[in-house]
Amino acid sequence: MVRLTFAAQRRRWLAWLLAIAWAVLLGLMPWWAGLPLLSGLAAIQAIQLPRLQRYHGFLRYALRWGLAGLLVAAYLAFDNHRLGLTLTALAALAGFSVLVLLESWQDHKPRRSAAIAAASPDWKELALAPIGPADTLIELQAPYWIALDGTSPDAPADVTMVGAHSCRIGVDARIDHVEPQVSIAPGARWLAWPMAAWRGVVLYDRAHDKPYRLRDWQLYGWHADEAWLSRDEEQPPLALSHVLGQDVIDEP
């Protein structure tokens, strides 16, 4: 069962209001001004820059609602309403068909970022790679979720829930908008909570007293005291250092 909090509902209503406002804005703009804007968004979606992958869903909704607003602007530009209605209908058929094809292509095309390419290189990268010792086999430890409702004896003493979706670590640190369960890394340095309504994961670094809130990611497992995260079943899990873009190799 997925429990939706008031904060999640407010975010959902805010998203709907922004989408409607975006469509109304393009509907009031001249069609020749909105068309290049939507074309630019479509090009960004087609290129799939790694740094913009986190905004993939946002751009998709912007194209959908923006196209609806553009069609309204195109219809209002015609003085002959009968001819305008016909041409707008044809434009709607063509535009939404292209949009569906673009989204289908994106859903079935593997998204290879630099981190994914490092984790699973294609045959060209393997052919050009130098011959050397085999890679180390990484075995992930599945996360063990501990309930923080006071019933689990494994719950850490310094981690307590102070509300339905708020957790306190020690005396000063506090994590909000999380589910009442936690997973602890083997070395006990990292803590992980599912976001409220399971919209992502929150990781807390005890050593540096720093939280990381990662939307649309889920904790897949632990390895060498590091969290490995996954977006969906079609992509391999990635280490937290890859996800954060902090994968640094120490030179001797």
Score class of each variant (00 low, 15 high):
Phe96Met: 09
Trp65Ala: 01
Asp79Ser: 04
Ala46Glu: 11
Leu126His: 10
His56Glu: 07
Ala89Val: 12
Ala127Thr: 13
Ala94Lys: 03
Gln45Glu: 15
Pro110His: 07
Asn80Ser: 07
Phe78Asn: 02
Leu99Glu: 05
Gln53Leu: 09
Ser97Pro: 03
Leu87Pro: 04
Ile131Asn: 09
Arg60Met: 10
Gly69Ser: 00
Phe78His: 07
Leu59Lys: 03
Leu126Gly: 06
Leu59Asn: 07
Pro130Arg: 13
His56Tyr: 07
Ala91Lys: 02
Asn80Ala: 08
Ala92Gln: 05
Ala119Trp: 01
Val98Arg: 06
Arg64Glu: 04
Lys124Asn: 11
Ala129Phe: 08
Ala114Gly: 04
Ile131Asp: 09
Glu125Tyr: 12
Leu67Ala: 00
Gln48Val: 13
Ile47Pro: 07
Ala114Trp: 00
Tyr61Asp: 09
Asp107Glu: 12
Leu85Thr: 15
Ala127Asp: 12
Gly69Leu: 02
Ser97Ala: 13
Leu83Ser: 14
Ser120Met: 08
Arg111Met: 05
Ala89Ser: 11
Ile131Gln: 12
Arg112Gly: 01
Ser120Arg: 06
Ala68Asp: 00
Gly95Arg: 03
Tyr75Glu: 10
Leu83Met: 15
Arg51Glu: 07
Ile47Lys: 12
Leu70Trp: 05
Glu125Phe: 13
Ile116Ser: 02
Asp122Gly: 14
Gly66Ala: 01
Ala89Glu: 07
Gln53Thr: 05
Pro50Asn: 05
Arg51Ser: 09
Pro130Asn: 09
Thr88Gly: 13
Asp107Val: 07
Trp105Asp: 04
Val100Asp: 04
Leu63Glu: 00
Leu59His: 05
Leu99Cys: 04
Leu49Phe: 12
Ala127Met: 14
Ala89Leu: 14
Arg54Lys: 07
Thr86Asp: 13
Thr88Ser: 14
Ser97Met: 08
Ala115Leu: 02
Trp123Gly: 05
Leu99Val: 02
Gln48Cys: 15
Val98Thr: 03
Gly66Glu: 00
Leu99Ile: 04
Gly66Thr: 00
Leu63Tyr: 00
Ala94Leu: 14
Ser104Val: 03
Ala77Glu: 11
Ile116Thr: 01
His108Asp: 08
Leu71Asp: 05
Ala129Thr: 08
Ala46Asp: 11
Asp122Thr: 10
Gln48Pro: 06
Tyr55Gly: 04
Arg82Gly: 08
Thr86Phe: 14
Ile47Glu: 10
Thr86His: 13
His81Lys: 11
Glu125Arg: 15
Glu103Ser: 01
Ala74Gly: 15
Leu71Met: 10
Ala114Asn: 01
Ala74Lys: 06
Val72Thr: 13
Gly132Phe: 06
Ala77Ile: 08
Gly57Lys: 09
Ala77Asp: 11
Thr88Tyr: 03
Gln53Ser: 09
Gly84Tyr: 09
Leu87Glu: 07
Ala129His: 09
Leu93Gly: 14
His56Val: 03
